[in-house]
């Protein structure tokens, strides 16, 4: 564990380590400097291994060990893409933030379905569609991906394209206003707030 405490090993959760005082300058919200490849692989393995466990559904030692090997191998093979993981803001309460985000997201998904159902069933077909632009403060690709996904699955909005810090969105009912301020406030702001707790 000792070597992890050098400054600049950004993505590894420093709060897992022994000393927190030494690492105040590299902790949680800082921009990670050159993260080490093996740390990314470790992190990716931590994401992939549970998938394997869910898939086999047993705790048979043979399955567990084969799964671990495969998870590490998969992580290693996807090494060129693993830099997206650097976008995660490590924080002791990260699990809580993720849970809150998932809750908000599922609630929005439910509302979105009722919303679409109501529109589809209504004889007048009450829609007022337009393509609007929304501004985002999330800088990382992973953050923008999650935000775009979230927007697509929420009431009346569909991500069409992503530019540097703009998302182009098809809005089924653009009554609140088609300019960027109104669109950002009513489409993206809420999710962005919850996402920005754990993603850059």
């Amino acid at each position: 564990m000792g070597r992890m405490h050098q400054p600049g090993l950004g993505i590894f959760p420093v709060w897992l380590g022994k000393s927190r005082i030494m690492n105040t300058n590299t902790s949680s919200v800082n921009v990670p400097q050159a993260a080490y490849g093996w740390q990314r692989i470790l992190l990716a393995t931590a994401f992939i291994y549970p998938v394997w466990l869910l898939m086999v559904g047993t705790f048979d030692p043979a399955e567990l060990s084969i799964g671990l090997i495969i998870a590490v191998l998969t992580a290693w093979l996807s090494k060129p893409h693993l830099h997206i993981l650097d976008a995660i803001k490590w924080h002791p309460a990260i699990a809580l933030y993720v849970l809150v985000y998932v809750g908000v997201f599922l609630w929005a998904l439910l509302r979105s379905n009722l919303d679409v159902a109501a529109r589809v069933l209504s004889p007048r077909l009450p829609i007022n569609p337009a393509i609007v632009e929304v501004e985002t403060h999330l800088r990382s690709d992973l953050g923008k991906l999650l935000l775009a996904n979230c927007i697509t699955l929420t009431p009346g909005t569909l991500t069409v394209d992503v530019f540097a810090d703009r998302l182009q969105i098809h809005w089924i009912d653009s009554t609140p206003g088609r300019d960027m301020t109104h669109a950002t406030a009513s489409i993206a702001a809420q999710f962005e707030y919850y996402l920005s707790k754990f993603i850059k």
Binding site: V120, I127, T152, L158, H170
Partner: peptide, 8 residues
């Protein structure tokens, strides 16, 4: 676009 919305 609206169809994709309803579909998704």
């Amino acid at each position: 676009y609206n169809r994709i919305q309803a579909g998704t």
